[in-house]
């Protein structure tokens, strides 16, 4: 038996999924921040806190906008927004490869000094997230 799920239900599930993933990231960021603070690592505490606050703001924005769109009868995602997301994520991925290459080179040459591997990974992940946001904002306004 095939169960049919309408587009509105899919959008509601999508909002709930985004909120759950966001909550995981907020909890992880908060734990990272508290743990770093307890060890006296102020940079780690600030980074973890910033991640938690950024994701919290993002989750509130997604929840409010998503609910408003659903109430007004618009889909959460349509073919244009999907295409923007695809282009932004693929470009962010390609450019972040160069970013990782540059980080690796600068680190091996001693130009950038990382405390440990987790700090290098955090910087790279932050860079990828910023690149994605920049490309999304660009393609959101551009002819595609």
């Amino acid at each position: 038996m095939k169960i049919k799920i309408n587009a509105e239900s899919v959008d509601k599930i999508r909002i709930v999924a985004i909120i759950i993933v966001s909550l995981f990231v907020i909890v992880t960021g908060t734990l990272w921040s508290l743990n770093s603070f307890a060890k006296g690592d102020i940079a780690g505490a600030v980074t973890g806190g910033l991640i938690a606050i950024t994701i919290l703001v993002f989750a509130i924005f997604v929840y409010m906008r998503g609910n408003k769109d659903l109430r007004e009868g618009y889909p959460l995602k349509d073919e244009r927004s999907g295409r923007v997301l695809e282009k932004a994520s693929s470009k962010a991925f390609y450019v972040s490869l160069y970013l990782l290459l540059a980080v690796g080179f600068l680190s091996s040459e001693g130009i950038i000094k990382f405390r440990d591997v987790s700090q290098a990974i955090s910087l790279s992940m932050g860079g990828m997230a910023i690149l994605f946001a920049v490309f999304w904002a660009y393609y959101h306004r551009k002819e595609i």
């Binding site: 587009a7 009868g73 618009y74 349509d78 073919e79 927004s81």
Partner: peptide, 26 residues
């Protein structure tokens, strides 16, 4: 634009970009 967007199941900004000729639809 809102009416048309709802009738074809897309977001309003998609209709805005279509009218400006800045989006090639499927």
């Amino acid at each position: 634009q809102e009416d048309l967007a709802k009738k074809v199941g897309v977001r309003r900004e998609t209709i805005v970009f279509l009218e400006k000729g800045k989006y090639n639809p499927s």
